[in-house]
Design a protein around this nucleic acid. Sequence first.
RNA 1: GCGCCUCUAGCUCAACUGGCAGAGCAGCUGACUCUUAAUCAGCGGGUUCGGGGUUCGAGUCCCCGGGGGCGUACCA
Length: 501
Amino acid sequence: MSEQPIVEDIPEQMRVRRDKRDRILNSGGQPYPVAVPVTHSIAQVRDAYAILEADVETPDVVGVAGRVVFVRNTGKLCFAAIQDGEGNRLQLMVSLAAVGEESLAAFKADVDLGDHVFAQGRVGTSRRGEVSVFVSTWRLAAKALRPLPVLHKELAEDTRVRQRYVDLLVRPLARETVRQRALVLRSLRESLHGRGFIEIETPMLQTQHGGATARPFVTHMNAFDIDLYMRIAPELFLKRAVVGGIEKVFEINRNFRNEGADSSHSPEFSMLEAYEAYGDYLSMATLTQNLVQTAAMDVFGTTTVRHANGEEYELGGEWPSITLYGSLSEALGTEITPETPVPALQALCDAAEIAGDPRHANHGKLVEQLWEHHVGSGLTRPTFVKDFPVETSPLTREHRTTPGLVEKWDLYVSGFELATAYSELVDPVIQRERFENQARLAALGDAEAMRLDEDFLTAMEHGMPPTGGMGMGIDRLLMALTGLGIRETILFPLVKPEERQ
RNA sequence: GCGCCUCUAGCUCAACUGGCAGAGCAGCUGACUCUUAAUCAGCGGGUUCGGGGUUCGAGUCCCCGGGGGCGUACCA
């Protein structure tokens, strides 16, 4: 060891690996070569030679590379397993007879768990029958300076999320979840494209936030010197597109809401919104059931999915519909209607010890709170809950038969809200009144109330066709399919930085 | 936001009512041409999350701060 004044205060195992890197460089080697001559993937070799009997050597020469996940250095014959990004493994056998004394010694000295290694040699099998490359030459493909965690123990949850790349290396389910999410997105897009929907992208930076009731993130644009909002929903722009004649339109993209984060909420989350001119909330229900069931089939080949806790969940068949007021009345044993006065609802909330903010205790919010408490928490199988109070749904048209209701459903799957859909409000005069009501709520201190959007109203005044619209949380769809928490369905979820003082 | 639990070696975890900070894997040295969580012999490795306090003595008790988990409230 040289006595440099720069004594790095790093753990022993990292120091050892840095020393190895230095030694390789100093002896004219290259710990990070620009390229290695790979001829076959690990999976290709495994698949092609899976039928070999034990203890044979073929004349076929391959060049393979992968991350070292197992090393066994014995006297004159070393074993290593290299792994690809999908978790496929291939054994390398490095023998004194094949590579010579110097190369064998270098292998023992330089190769650590976690390194990327390239090897060339004949394919064969070990005496135990494992498909292996009998290495004739090898070299480092990339030196890892940090040790791999123990492969046989679960990583701490914190590490799994903060260092997802490590999680992906060591935990098959982490890799599987990434693949499943990609398949779900692909399935949704293919289903929608197959029905003639066009995918568009609408602004994420908005001068005015709208389309949902939520608190936004605020940012600032220097060039115009104005505040901008990260969008809370794409709804109002997708509707502008419908006004413009894109009659079947959808977007799959991120929304941002400046609210709580827990096992089913993330400050940024992915959302599918789809709008269909001349559709309504009933046609959107059919579409939604179909999208979800097709996604389950495309990912798992069945609508009976198995959740992370081992339980089966049935997504197949026709999903039942209940009405909000009907199911609540049934659960309470007393009739609740859009005419039920606020004091009576408040009394029921008090009786059930539901704490609400009394400043905005209107009929709609109270009914929804009661429903959540008495009905929603008990729903298990996929269920459409239909016909909501008008106060809480300012973008939804009035019910075609029942005054005081709007044509909206929420879809509940495995205990949480997966999707929602409306027969969209398209009358610009009523839409303006609804916005004005929201503005009154905002004035009373409701931070989530919608803002009046003149530009959107102008678009609607140009004539919006009768339209059905639907929104579905992509992360939540993954949750419904896998039973995982939202932070496991998102590859790199937001984590609090660790403050160092 | 509130409540409860938690943070110890690279990783996963021990450490009794406060009394010398340990194990497995990983690492280092050596042996081994069929290992695959190899085996054998030996050796290193610690800001016990940070700061303060109580005490002869703190990983352990108290206070402040930070991270994480669970529950609960609001939102998808």
